[in-house]
């Protein structure tokens, strides 16, 4: 009851904005290649629906693959680095440098390295590259977030490094790792889109390619439909991570 009441204001705003957009297009008689009205976008969404859905699936799969790669590499590296303070000092500047380098600038290079006929690999690699930092940083921060008194307790009872990792640091790191995953999920979609733009020419058939293709033909309504699909994809990925987060958090009942 209360939830549905909370939904009313944003829905209302959405309807008002759409109506204004539709009205403006008709009143000002804008050409549809410049700004099509929402009704035309909806029509394009239906007309190009199957193609867009297939492309969204491709982008989704590439983003998830990238998240898995970034999780394994970022998490694994954080784990190794957490064992030695000097290792962290060595690796952190590199990780930050990687993070601040614009992905667009690196994309053509990665495309060459992955092989021009393996554009899908380049897309996964680039998406993984941008998803790497939040996962690495989240896991590393989490591994060091254990209560110092609990660390002392493990000292007191002579815990082995493995016991300390398994019974104290990994469980302490979990909420931070999940937070990192949430950020990484959004970035992975961005990385995938950028990589597809750069590789161009239909080497991959993800949503970004659909956008490029529709753009080349000046089918602006279909472009907007593609953007809408990307938004929905991002939201779906975010919700999926949120769901994982909730399940894990409830299972271990971490108080946050």
């Amino acid at each position: 009851m209360r939830r549905s009441a909370e939904l009313i204001p944003p829905l209302l705003l959405g309807v008002v904005l759409l109506a204004a957009w539709e009205g403006a297009c008709r009143l000002l008689d804008l050409p549809p290649y410049f700004l099509p009205p929402p009704s035309a976008v909806a029509a394009a969404l239906i007309e190009a629906g199957p193609r867009l859905a297939a492309s969204a699936w491709i982008t989704f799969v590439m983003a998830v693959q990238a998240l898995i790669v970034a999780g394994l590499v970022g998490g694994g590296l954080a784990l190794m680095v957490s064992l030695h303070a000097s290792a962290e000092r060595a690796v952190r500047p590199l990780a930050v440098a990687l993070q601040v380098t614009p992905v667009v600038a690196v994309a053509p290079l990665v495309l060459i390295w992955a092989g021009l006929d393996h554009a899908d690999r380049a897309v996964v690699a680039l998406a993984a590259l941008v998803a790497f930092f939040p996962l690495f940083s989240g896991v590393l921060t989490g591994l060091k977030s254990a209560d110092p008194d609990l660390e002392r307790l493990f000292d007191l009872y002579g815990a082995t490094p493995l016991q300390r990792l398994w019974r104290l640091r990994l469980p302490s790191a979990l909420p931070f790792a999940l937070e990192g995953l949430r950020v990484a999920a959004g970035l992975a979609v961005i990385g995938a889109v950028v990589a597809e733009f750069v590789s161009g020419s239909g080497a991959t058939q993800g949503l970004a390619w659909r956008l490029l293709e529709a753009g080349n033909r000046l089918r602006t309504a279909e472009m907007l439909a593609g953007v809408l699909c990307l938004t929905l994809l991002g939201l779906a990925l975010n919700a999926a991570v949120g769901l994982v987060e909730r399940i894990v958090t409830v299972r271990i009942r971490v108080r946050r």
Binding site: Y157, R167, I252, R253, V254, R255
Partner: peptide, 19 residues
């Protein structure tokens, strides 16, 4: 300073298990 992911019994068993 209990571990929030473990129940009371597991928290108390910890020193013995570490040993």
């Amino acid at each position: 300073t209990l571990t929030p992911w473990a129940d009371a019994q597991a928290n108390v068993a910890l020193p013995l298990e570490l040993a």
